[in-house]
């Protein structure tokens, strides 16, 4: 019983770690590919076009 509880909480936090990594990665992709904050569009312009992100 105890082991089962611990095992599932371990699984949960593993999944939380994986989810955190995925969300962090998506945040970086959003910043590089989509964000218009500050001068992001100008700095990112060439790499967005070259990577095939819709740019403007």
């Amino acid at each position: 019983m105890t082991t089962k509880t611990i095992a599932s909480s371990g699984t949960l936090s593993e999944i939380a770690t994986i989810a955190f990594a995925a969300v962090f990665g998506l945040g970086l992709i959003f910043a590089a590919g989509f964000s218009h904050a500050g001068g992001m569009h100008d700095v990112a312009h060439d790499s967005r076009h070259a990577t095939g992100f819709p740019c403007h």
């Binding site: 995925a22 990665g25 998506l26 945040g27 992709i29």
Partner: peptide
């Protein structure tokens, strides 16, 4: 961007 792709 590529570090972002790397994390995913």
């Amino acid at each position: 961007g590529w570090i972002g792709f790397g994390f995913v």
